[in-house]
């Protein structure tokens, strides 16, 4: 795909988002459908790029396998309902294989587990949130911040809350008469415990296990020359 076309696509999708935002302000009761559309548009460029790449079988399998690993990662922790390792797996995949793969792993994990467990209005939001966790982790992967254990922990802690906040939006946008601060506060207070648990388990996993995971994934990457730089960002 040519550079100008790609730029055009990005601009177009962001233009679309801006137009939608205006619409949203105009018609209150369309918040939810429009927000879903908006989320879809934000994710579109990632999937377009993925579609345009000619992937080797190994690379496609890696994305699918990592997505599946993230989707099943809750099984060993079934006895601990508040522990949520999916974000950790997505961050690790992004740190080793880059931002785009990180986004794909996160969003594919979300869509696959929703396809199995039943979809809802939260599906696109989950795809977006986990995708973005992967994307941002991948963008920062060569920085000093992410190289340090504390940096990674802080990143995980932050996203633990951010994730919950984004996920709260779908109910807030759709089902409150006015986006007042108290309404915000109440929804966010209701989810505080879950978000904290998510943030803390991210910190726990990232401080204790990111080294081991970087080794495991790094070995696979090296052994098979997968998703090399320049192709995967």
């Amino acid at each position: 795909m040519s550079e100008s076309l790609r730029k055009g696509l990005y601009v177009l999708s962001f233009g679309g988002i801006a137009a939608l935002l205006v619409l949203v302000l105009w018609r209150r009761e369309l918040y939810l459908p429009l927000s879903l559309l908006m989320i879809g548009l934000v994710m579109l460029p990632f999937f377009i790029r993925f579609e345009r790449r000619r992937l080797r079988a190994e690379e496609l399998l890696l994305v699918a396998m990592l997505g599946a690993i993230a989707a099943v990662s809750r099984v060993p922790f079934a006895a601990l309902p508040s522990v949520q390792p999916v974000s950790f797996v997505v961050i690790m995949a992004a740190l080793v294989f880059g931002a785009e793969t990180g986004f794909l792993v996160g969003s594919i994990a979300a869509v696959a587990s929703n396809l199995m467990l039943g979809q809802g209005p939260w599906t696109p939001w989950q795809m977006f949130s986990w995708g973005m966790i992967g994307f941002t982790a991948g963008l920062l992967r060569h920085t000093r911040f992410m190289a340090s254990r504390w940096g990674r922990a802080a990143f995980g802690f932050g996203w633990g809350f951010l994730f919950g906040w984004i996920m709260n939006l779908w109910s807030l946008l759709g089902f409150y008469d006015r986006l007042s601060w108290p309404a915000f506060a109440s929804v966010y207070a209701a989810s505080f415990y879950f978000d904290l648990a998510h943030a803390l388990s991210n910190v726990f996993f990232l401080t204790l296990f990111s080294g081991i995971w970087l080794n495991i994934l790094g070995r696979v990457k090296q052994k098979y020359g997968l998703l090399e730089n320049g192709r995967a960002g």
């Binding site: 399998l61 890696l62 690993i69 522990v83 390792p85 204790l208 995971w213 696979v220």
Partner: peptide
């Protein structure tokens, strides 16, 4: 339990990624 859960994951990840190369 969280530590052991991660041990479970380590085995799974290493094994499954290794094997997905056979799938390829």
């Amino acid at each position: 339990l969280m530590r052991e859960g991660m041990e479970t994951m380590h085995t799974l990840v290493a094994w499954s990624l290794e094997e997905s190369m056979q799938s390829a």
